[in-house]
Design a protein around this nucleic acid. Structure first.
Length: 475
DNA sequence: GCATGATCATGC
DNA sequence: GCATGATCATGC
């Protein structure tokens, strides 16, 4: 059968125009319409549908679009799907948050990282870039309550080419990943090492390991992927036009790498006191804003609000650090609270906290108290948790926390305060569990029905200090 | 002096 | 009303 009249396979715009006929249809609709055209037998069609409903079969929905809508056989090679047009087809889910906003449900996997081949490639010539420079995005709405995934509905179909500013950042991301492999550290790769293009874990089982060229250590299989945060931004700015747009930090053309540029800007105000900075940026200090120090960082970066485009896309979170006169950090770093009953149902590899740390990049804005107890800006540092600190130390604390809750949290009252057996700061160098609630009545339910003040994982103050560059401490 | 538990306060 | 950044209080 000849389908060439449906679209011109050499022309991206023709492919896109044809793809837009998918909008509003479910995957079941696509199969049904195709079966009608081809007069496929009922048995044949049923078996096709059953095999593609299977949730284990990850690529199933993409296959339906390829085989039943575009009518080309799936290729598994390195060429883009529409080779003659240079277009890669990606079928990817989005979701609607409780507050009505749209978000990507997953990162967009581009292609597996071949640890041996990639160290020979330049970004421009890479296998990755051939598949990432022009993508036909088919976004379908994921809804938990829908039982058969063939009933998910397609909401958008649009060509996407990364903008120039993003390509620069992706090229740098690519080079950071390749450099780490060249150093024999493929086993220490983490998605939060980079900004938009991440080295995402991609294993059939958690035991799955690959060889790497410059070390005998086996590494987790990983794929190049556009991060979830990046895909959410794309969805809200290029696919659905004019939603949540944020001001970018990079407004002019610069040859500097993003993070160096940011550090340069912040360092220009090194040793300014918070009071100086408030005066300079006309912030009323008497009614101290909640997150004043982070706000000042945005002002220094030329951002009016409290969001920056690059930080949103890269999932970079600002954390303020205050070093005391004694060169120590007084307070540990808190994170969102966890629900006891949810944590016991999780597994470490897919846990909320483990995933958060492995996918989040941080910008530490560092201040220090001077002799007169005035806070002075010292600079900033980009950071993500090293692979082993996460997968050995944090994992240990997380596992113990889970066990403590499962075994029944032990609580004794002492001087009107609870004493519990959650992992504390003295028993692990990296993190601990502590309350993070409004007051003692701000609780979550334990699996055994008792209520207990909300808790969260904290990174130890001593650990944070050990991760900071030396210059902050002595200077 | 620090570890641990507790809570304040802004802002969404 | 609650999440989150920030910091306090106290006993070991």
């Amino acid at each position: 059968m000849n389908y060439s009249k449906d679209y011109d396979e050499t022309n991206p715009l023709s492919i896109e125009a044809y793809a837009q006929k998918l909008i509003g249809k479910t995957f079941a609709d696509v199969c049904y319409e195709d079966a009608m055209k081809k007069a496929t037998s009922v048995e044949e069609e049923n078996s096709y549908v059953v095999s593609h409903e299977n949730k284990q079969r990850k690529g199933g929905l993409g296959e339906i679009i390829e085989e039943r809508f575009f009518h080309y056989p799936c290729n598994n090679d390195s060429r883009p799907d529409f080779d003659k047009a240079g277009v890669e087809l990606k079928v990817t889910p989005y979701k609607i948050n409780k507050n009505g906003s749209l978000a990507a449900k997953e990162r967009l996997i581009i292609t597996m990282i071949d640890y041996f081949a990639v160290v020979e490639e330049s970004f421009e010539e890479s296998h990755l870039w051939k598949k990432a420079q022009l993508i036909l995005l088919i976004y379908y709405l994921y809804r938990q309550e829908i039982e058969s995934r063939l009933d998910y509905k397609i909401g958008y179909a649009k060509l996407f080419a990364p903008p120039i500013a993003d390509i620069k950042i992706m090229k740098h991301d690519f080079e950071v990943i390749v450099e780490k492999i060249k150093e024999g550290k493929a086993h220490q790769l983490s998605e939060s090492d980079t900004m938009y293009l991440g080295a995402a874990p991609k294993a059939a089982t958690s035991q799955d390991r690959r060889k790497q060229p410059f070390s005998n250590e086996l590494a987790k299989p990983r794929a190049f992927a556009f991060k979830n945060s990046y895909m959410t931004y794309i969805l809200n700015n290029y696919i659905v036009l004019g939603k949540d747009t944020y001001e970018p930090i990079i407004k002019e053309d610069t040859t500097e790498f993003f993070e160096d540029y940011v550090m340069g800007k912040i360092n220009a105000y090194r040793d300014y006191t918070v009071t100086d900075l408030c005066r300079k940026f006309e912030i009323e200090y008497n009614k101290k804003p909640k997150n004043l120090e982070a706000m000042l960082a945005y002002r220094i970066l030329g951002i009016k609000g409290n969001h920056a485009e690059e930080f949103e896309k890269a999932n970079i979170v600002i954390k303020t650090i205050r070093i005391g006169k004694n060169n120590k950090i007084k307070e540990s770093m808190s994170f969102p609270t966890f629900k006891f009953k949810e944590l016991v149902e999780e597994e470490w590899d897919t846990s909320t906290f483990g995933t958060y740390l492995s996918e989040t990049r941080f910008m530490f804005v560092v201040y220090k108290f001077d002799e007169n107890d005035e806070l002075r800006l010292k600079g900033c540092q980009f950071w993500n948790i090293p692979y082993e600190d996460l997968n050995i130390e944090v994992k240990k604390v997380w596992m113990k926390t889970q066990k403590v809750i499962m075994d029944g949290l032990q609580v004794i009252q002492k001087n009107g305060k609870n004493r519990n057996n959650f992992p504390n700061a003295s028993e692990n160098p990296v993190c601990h569990v502590r309350p993070h609630a409004q007051n003692s009545r701000d609780t979550y339910e334990l699996p055994d029905g008792r209520h207990y003040p909300k808790q969260c994982f904290w990174l130890n103050n001593s650990y944070i200090l050990s991760q900071l560059r030396k210059e902050f401490i002595d200077g």
